[in-house]
Amino acid sequence: MKRILFYDDGSGFGGHSISAIDAVKYLLENTNLKVGFMFYQGNQRLYDRLTLLVREFKYLELYPIEFKAARFRNLGALLSFPVVAKIAQTISIIKPDVVIVVQGTIELSSLGLLAAKKANLKAISFIPLTQSLSLMQGKLSKLRDFINLHFYKLPDAFITTSAQAKYNLVQQGVKSKISVVYYGPDLRVWHRQERNISRQKYGIDNSDYVVALVARIELKHKGHDFLITSMAKYASKLENIKLLVVGDGSDEEKLQKLIQTSGLSERVKIIPWGNDLSYIYSAIDMLVIPSRLEGLPLVMLEAMYYGLPIVASSIDGMLEILPQEWLFQFGDSEAAIETLLRVKNSDNTEYLLNHKKRIMTEFNLDEFGKNFYKTLCEAQIDTKD
């Protein structure tokens, strides 16, 4: 294996994008592989991050394309014969030994799966979210889940990020090799900032207990609406708790209206996503992850590094990593608020020290990169004709 190509035609930028960039960085620093990245040219945040990498590693090859995933990505991909043919032609010219298709879900970058197969190249799906779309109650979810059964058959191998995600893939009928590779923060770039300065930066009073939700603002996925309605319902119990929502996304306007109508404007503040979250983690007291579905949230691992308690819905990577006392059933507002209050008032020292140790030894960029590269090599051997 001498040349690999990452492929991501999504217009959004989330944890799966960040972890893919981290994988690229590790491979460039520690292997002799020639690495390329094909991406939708309209994804400005992804382009900016890749451009920074090119400045550091001038031999990283970028291939911007004009195509992006359709609204109903799987159905749109199946019907996009000319587009798939053009992408396949471009990939064939690059001549990678393997195409790593960066997929938040199986629908994302599904054009890349089809193009790699049309070009008769090995395709590895790098995918953290493997649940049925019916769980999100989206439009045409049952039809899309049915179509996705076809896409789950296309990759020659899968790299996913939690044991639950691997289990879900098996339930989807996947027969290809599935490897679990845990990722985590780059310990070289994360630093604790001075707490008072960090709080002043975001206008946080020292008497406030600040809980942060750090995620794309996509209500059906990340559960912002569930958290806000839960806080409104039990507002009398919240005392000095304030919520800091960090992020942006397609549902930001809906969230703003929900905050206002719920009477939480004085308790909830939204700030835009930034490249350096160290001041956020240094300013807050707790992270909350109220997601309807997840993979292995990078923000959870970052919060573990910063010694923060994390209250989360009892699913996927959170269920696998966090103590049971910190978890609640999604949809149960009373349980969510009671868990938040219990963790706030508990001595979490033992858990926090153990989490920091696991970040230093298991969940970090170096371990992720080594295991990612090892998995690539094994998958390439296992899938040779």
Rank of each mutant, 00 (worst) to 15 (best):
L149D: 00
A336N: 05
Q103E: 08
A85Q: 10
Y26P: 02
S282Q: 10
G247R: 15
K122T: 12
Q89K: 15
S207R: 15
K68W: 09
L238P: 05
R342H: 09
L78W: 14
R71W: 09
D22Q: 15
Q260I: 13
L308Q: 08
I127L: 07
S162C: 09
K370D: 00
I310D: 00
A85L: 11
R267I: 04
I204Y: 07
W326I: 03
Q171R: 15
I65W: 06
Q256P: 01
S313Y: 12
L301W: 13
L243Q: 06
V99A: 04
L28V: 07
K139E: 02
K254S: 03
K177A: 04
K384P: 00
V299R: 10
Q260W: 10
Q172I: 03
I100W: 14
F158A: 05
I94C: 01
G274M: 08
L46H: 05
G10N: 12
L53D: 00
D205K: 15
D48H: 08
I93P: 02
K201T: 11
Q131A: 05
S17Q: 15
K2S: 04
Y306D: 01
L341S: 05
D276Q: 14
G369F: 09
V35P: 01
D347L: 11
K201C: 00
H221R: 14
I310T: 07
R3G: 00
F57Q: 03
D385E: 10
L60W: 11
M318H: 10
P128E: 01
V101Y: 04
I65G: 00
M300S: 08
Y209Q: 10
G15M: 06
P272T: 12
K222Y: 06
P290V: 14
K34Q: 10
L238R: 13
I4Q: 01
Y182S: 02
E378D: 12
S333D: 03
P82E: 02
E218A: 11
T383H: 08
Q41A: 06
L365F: 05
L293T: 13
I91G: 00
A85V: 04
T229S: 04
A215V: 07
Y7P: 01
N168V: 06
A165D: 02
L50A: 03
R267S: 01
A215Q: 12
Y373N: 05
N32A: 03
V268E: 00
F146E: 02
N43H: 10
N240F: 03
P309Y: 13
L108D: 02
S92H: 13
S207Y: 10
F330Q: 07
H150V: 12
K222I: 07
V170L: 09
L129D: 06
E29T: 09
S333Y: 11
I259D: 01
D8N: 15
K86N: 09
Y167L: 05
G112Y: 09
I284S: 02
S17T: 15
D208N: 15
R188E: 02
F13M: 05
L108A: 08
S19K: 14
Y26A: 06
G138E: 05
A312C: 05
A336T: 08
K2P: 00
N32E: 09
A123H: 05
Q89H: 12
H191G: 00
D208A: 14
M286S: 03
